[in-house]
Structure formats: structure tokens, C-alpha cells
């Protein structure tokens, strides 16, 4: 993999990003109603001042270039509904929370998924294979917004083991991150199992076995790297899914993350916040996909990008 590939990928991201910004920006402006039309009738002068404050009185194209200029300085503008707060401040406050939730969930997904899938591949067609694989069908088919409330019901309300809302202690992290990680753990376990099963019949595994290595040694030293490839290529979609899934998880568990702000501002029609947060989400997903692709090449030298 050459530097050219990385550079080309980064360069193609720019037009796509611009396209997204433009699309979202003009969608807002051509949509019926404005951010102030929903409020109580305000005096004409107040409305005029408000519009001047948010530069809504300028020609559309000028507003567009203003937004682009501010964006290039990472300034996402003021919030319409949270007065005296900028979108940057809101993101700075809420994003780390979402980030933490996402990372813990990803760790759960990888930890549970790879170990369950590895176990199943080590002892195929036994109890150790059937139980995790049946559970994984559940995990794939059940949506987060069903798993979450049911977990709250069982572990929070009936058994009273874990707190069901908030984001202070480490116990608060458990239920939301497990809820969010569950579906991906399920999928990853299937991919891991599939990857390992395929690699079992390769010549270099037979050689390792002929050398007299134990099955566990073969698994850890020889199959892991190849068997994990399907999981790595799934990481891109998984990360995107975890980011989207966080919207629901944060709502269910009352977590003060970015997802909740996004939904809240979508419902309140707080245009700048919706736009700023969704641009952040887009960027995040682009970057994640990019990193996953690079990581994939590092793991599998057979893959070459032109």
C-alpha cells in the first residue's frame, strides 16, 4: 500500500464532504417553515433582529459561503434553541460521553464476539458451538430498542442489580454499553467462527498440527491473524452502526451524549445543531471506514489497493 492510496482516499473525501454540506444546507433552506416560525408571534422588529443575529437576512448564497467559511475554521455557529450556546460548545460537552459509550460497546462486541466465535470454531458442532451461535441469531434479529428496555426491565427493575439511567459511576456504563455492543458481538462471533472454520483446512495449519502444536496454540499463533480478517472488514459498518445505535441507547438510558442532543434538536428544529452534529457523524464514519481499510491492508498483505 502506497502513500498515494492514502492520499487519494483523503482527497476523495473532500468532494464527498462538500457534497454533504451543500445538500444538507440547502435542504434546510428550502424546507417549509423557519426556525422562528414555530415560536409564538414575535414583534416584527424582534424577528428582524433575530434574523440579523443569525444572518438570515442575507442572500442565500452569501449565507452558504459564510457557513463554509465558518466551517473551515471549525465554527459550527450558534444554537437556535439553546440561547447563548454555540454548537461547538454543545459538541465539546456531549461528544466525549458518546465516544466513551461507543468505545466501551465496541470493546464488548470484540471481546464477546471473538471469544464466542473462537470457542465455537474450536469445538464445532458441540454444545460450545450451538449455544453461542443460537444466541447470536437472537442478537442479530433483536433491535437495540427492544434489547435495551428489556435489559432495563430485567436487570434494573426486577432484579435491581444495576442502575437504569444516568452517566456517573462505572455501573452506569454497564447496561447501555452491553445493550449497544450485543448486536455487534453476535455478528462478530459469526464472522469469527466463519473465518476460523475456513482457515482450519489451510496447509499451514496442517503443518502446525504436524509439528505437534496443541489446538489452542494453533488457534492463537496461526489462525487468529487470518481468521480475524472478516471481523476487521466488518469493523467499518459496525462502527457506523454503533454510532447510529447510540442515538437509541442514549435516549433509553438517559445519557447526556451527542445522540440525545441530535434527536432533541431534530425534534425542536434547532437547525444549526442538527447540521453540526450530523456533519460530525458523517466525518466520523468516513474516518472510521478509512482507518479500517488501512488496518485491513496491514493485516492481510495479499490485499493490494491500486
Amino acid at each position: 500500500m502506497g502513500l498515494t492510496y492514502i492520499l487519494r482516499r483523503l482527497l476523495t473525501m473532500i468532494p464527498v464532504f462538500l457534497l454533504v454540506v451543500t445538500l444538507v444546507f440547502f435542504m434546510i433552506r428550502f424546507a417549509p417553515g423557519g426556525p422562528f416560525s414555530a415560536e409564538k408571534k414575535v414583534p416584527a422588529q424582534v424577528l428582524k433582529n433575530l434574523e440579523a443575529k443569525y444572518h438570515m437576512d442575507e442572500p442565500l448564497i452569501q449565507q452558504y459561503f459564510r457557513y463554509l467559511r465558518d466551517l473551515s475554521r471549525f465554527d459550527l455557529g450558534p444554537s437556535f434553541k439553546h440561547s447563548n450556546r454555540t454548537v461547538n460548545e454543545i459538541i465539546a460537552e456531549a461528544f466525549p460521553v458518546s465516544m466513551e459509550l461507543g468505545l466501551i460497546s465496541l470493546c464488548w462486541a470484540l471481546l464477546i464476539g471473538i471469544s464466542a466465535g473462537g470457542l465455537a470454531a474450536l469445538k464445532p458442532n458441540t454444545f460450545y458451538d450451538y449455544i453461542p451461535m443460537s444466541l447470536s441469531i437472537l442478537g442479530i434479529c433483536l433491535p437495540t430498542f427492544v434489547v435495551g428496555p428489556v435489559m432495563v426491565l430485567i436487570f434494573g427493575l426486577w432484579l435491581n442489580w444495576l442502575p437504569v439511567a444516568g452517566w456517573n459511576s462505572w455501573q452506569d456504563r454497564l447496561l447501555p454499553s452491553l445493550t449497544l455492543g450485543f448486536a455487534y458481538a453476535a455478528y462478530i462471533s459469526r464472522l469469527t467462527r466463519g473465518g476460523f472454520m475456513e482457515i482450519r483446512h489451510q496447509d499451514f495449519i496442517r503443518t502446525a498440527r504436524a509439528k505437534g502444536l496443541t489446538e489452542t496454540q494453533i488457534l492463537l499463533k496461526h489462525s487468529l491473524r487470518g481468521g480475524i480478517l472478516p471481523v476487521v472488514s466488518y469493523l467499518g459498518p459496525a462502527l457506523a452502526g454503533i454510532i447510529t445505535g447510540a442515538l437509541v441507547t442514549e435516549t433509553i438510558f438517559n445519557i447526556p451524549g451527542l445522540g440525545r442532543f441530535f434527536i432533541e434538536s431534530a425534534l425542536n428544529r434547532d437547525y444549526t445543531v442538527v447540521m453540526g452534529t450530523s456533519l460530525l457523524y458523517f466525518t466520523l464514519i468516513f474516518v472510521c471506514n478509512f482507518l479500517v481499510d488501512i488496518f485491513y491492508v496491514l493485516l492481510d498483505p495479499r490485499v493490494k489497493y491500486e
Binding site: 444538507v24 457506523a240 454510532i243 447510529t244 431534530a266 428544529r269 442538527v274 450530523s278 457523524y281 458523517f282
Partner: peptide, 13 residues
């Protein structure tokens, strides 16, 4: 590469 669900949310908003 675009997360469509966000596009749908924006559309609905």
C-alpha cells in the same frame, strides 16, 4: 459511505 439513516432523519425534520 454515507450514513443514510442520518439523511432520513434530516429529511423528516
Amino acid at each position: 459511505a454515507l450514513p443514510f439513516i442520518f439523511m432520513v432523519i434530516i429529511l423528516m425534520v
